[in-house]
Amino acid sequence: MSDNSLPDELAATMRKAIRLEYWNLFWTATIIVTMGLVLGQSQTMKTAWVEDTLGVVPPIMFVIAAHMELRGTRSAHFPFGFERVNGLGFFVAAVALTAVGALLLYNAIMSLIATEHATVGSIVLFGQHIWLGWLMIAAQIYSLIPPLFIGRKELPLAEELNDKLLHTDALMNKANWLTGAAGLAGIIGLGLGWWWADALAAAIISVAVINDGVKALRSSTAELVDGAPRALSQPALSEDAQALCEHLQAEFPGTTVRLRETGRLIRAEVHGAHSPQDWQHPRRYWPSEKERAWRLAQVSFVPPVEAVAELLSDSKP
């Protein structure tokens, strides 16, 4: 067992994921700069730009959490290491997504109510007067490409690491084409003289951002308040944790099994049972694929209440 909280078999995958997230940050930075250069007054572009800028929150939180998990050793102040930093990062990313999504939706709705007509003027490029909208369209198309590839590469790593933060980022990247398409439609609509297209596209993008944020918020808060382990991509209970719960109940009939998740690890409490005489490593209780047994970090036993009462009566003078 290593000094840090990360299971040994995940170290190589984690390093691979960190490298990928650095690439993710690099490509996202190029998108932010490209989009920022052609923002103009378009609500769609501003919303898409804020969305892209927000896109750096999950990878940054992942990289910070991953470094702490890899390098942060257990100490007197942090006896469990830093396995929950990832959960905290997931929560921070979720709050940022939801709050900014709500703000963007408010702005888009206000623009629609005020019937604001977005001005997109022209610039001179290579001696030609070009409508800035064309550059916005080019920037939007560019912003679609890197996330598509990065999202595909993130997904298997997130599943291997059982990392919700990375998984949420992967899904957001993979679904980025939807917001990109809305953004393109907004700019083209604006060019066609439909003043409402810009704000409407911005509202659609905001709803997508809020949707991602709320899903992440539900999962992350569940972990922080010791809820049962959740599935990677949704707030539903995870299948492997449910299988573990059934397995423990079968092994210790008549007991209550409580599971919680600390980062990527599961901790189990079996209430109403004494510790077995033949001591077993927690991983022995993992019911499915053995290569995923690292998920189970702890199995604790809480004796029945009667046993405690007997103990108390024996100790009386």
Partner: peptide
């Protein structure tokens, strides 16, 4: 010029340049 009248705004910008 009036906000959002982008073709008209482009023409005025080109004339100014």
């Amino acid at each position: 010029a009036r906000n959002g009248e982008n073709r008209w705004i482009m023409l005025a910008e080109r004339a100014a340049r």
